[in-house]
């Protein structure tokens, strides 16, 4: 079998890009697992809401003309919009769907997460319908909301969600530079570099700040952490906030990169990112980062030897092998210690 090097290199670059998405999403799984020992299966929907919130923000900014006057600021605000949308979703989810089950059996929050996952998908899909229904509520012949609000709110809800595929404006073009036969897109470089910067910032936050130390303390021993004056609920909420923001950023990036978003878009990247988190060692933050890139590259390399339809086989094959032969993952020693 001969290797077509330009194609292979192209796939490796793509692998790094996709790996960035996986890594950013995987961090949310691993951080939540760290503090709650629970897999937040609704994390893939937090990522999806991030993509939708980003597009929604983008459309608002475009209406204001900000994308013409100062595109850099507009892009930054778009990412912020996606991150905030995802963060609100994640924090609300923790408060309503997981915290009441904190003392229940370990399976209960897991099932709650799966339920929340369907709920969020349907919520975004039905948002325009819900908007129309709520705006149509009448009390004693009187409309509950002022008539002039109704149309704009319905329009906004329609713009946010719905069952149709939504399209991100093509601001990430195929423009780039060539190294020999290999074409590298600027967008790929931007995604890789900004992801690495975000992850470095997260690592420093967890390693050195007061908040980061409190998060690690909660992950290691909740009772002892409370004894240090740490408000456990607050730290868990912050953990969801940060993990969800990372997923939101990944959602916006993915929307910009692949252009199309839909309410079911979270499932595959979500479960791949989960694989990445397990691969790196669930609960381990550098592990999730490493796992994301290893998985992205493994898929790219796999494509070199297997038909494209087998891409998912590579990812999930790795998951099965890891679970059989090294359930603690590549960097998983710390977690194994913690379980003792």
């Amino acid at each position: 079998m001969s290797i077509n090097w330009p194609v292979f290199a192209d796939q490796l670059i793509n692998g790094l890009t996709v790996g960035s998405f996986y890594a950013l999403i995987a961090l949310g799984y691993t951080m939540v697992y760290g503090v709650l020992l629970m897999i937040n299966f609704a994390h893939s929907e937090i990522f999806m809401v991030g993509a939708y919130s980003g597009l929604f923000t983008m459309n608002r900014l475009a209406e204001m003309g900000l994308y013409e006057t100062s595109p850099a600021l507009a892009i930054l605000l778009t990412f912020l919009g996606g991150a905030i949308g995802a963060a609100l979703t994640g924090v609300t989810l923790e408060r309503l769907a997981y915290r009441p089950l904190r003392k229940a059996t370990r399976l209960a929050p897991l099932i709650s997460a799966i339920g929340a996952s369907f709920f969020l998908q349907e919520l975004v899909r039905l948002l325009p319908t819900i908007g129309k229904a709520v705006m149509g509520i009448r009390l004693g012949g009187q409309s509950l909301f002022p008539v002039n609000w109704q149309q704009s709110i319905i329009k906004l809800m329609d713009d946010f969600g719905g069952s149709k595929v939504k399209i991100y404006p093509g601001i990430m073009t195929t423009a780039g530079f060539d190294i020999g036969d290999i074409h590298v897109r600027y967008s790929q470089v931007v995604i890789l570099v900004s992801s690495l910067l975000i992850m470095a910032a997260l690592y420093l936050l967890v390693r050195y700040t007061r908040l980061g130390k409190a998060m690690r303390a909660v992950a290691e021993d909740k009772e002892a952490a409370a004894l240090m004056g740490i408000d456990i609920n607050q730290i868990i909420s912050r953990t969801f906030l940060i993990g969800s923001m990372l997923a939101g950023v990944a959602g916006v990036m993915m929307g910009m990169y692949y252009l199309q978003i839909r309410t079911t878009m979270g499932f595959v990247p979500g479960i791949k990112a989960f694989t990445a988190a397990v691969l790196g060692g669930i609960g381990n933050i550098p592990g999730a980062m490493l796992g994301g890139y290893v998985l992205g590259l493994a898929e790219a390399i796999g494509l070199q030897f297997l038909p494209a339809v087998y891409k998912d086989v590579v990812a999930f094959g790795i998951l099965v092998l890891i679970l059989i032969f090294k359930p603690t993952g590549i960097l998983g020693e710390v977690v194994a210690q913690k379980k003792l």
Binding site: A217, E220, L227, V334
Partner: peptide
């Protein structure tokens, strides 16, 4: 003994000081 086993001695003390310090999420970023 209930120390935080995977944290350094210094970090254990800093966590102990948690409630006497103020920097929150925004400050951390």
């Amino acid at each position: 003994i209930r120390l935080f086993p995977a944290m350094t001695a210094l970090e254990n003390i800093l966590v102990g000081r948690h409630s006497r310090l103020k920097t929150g999420l925004i400050g951390a970023i």
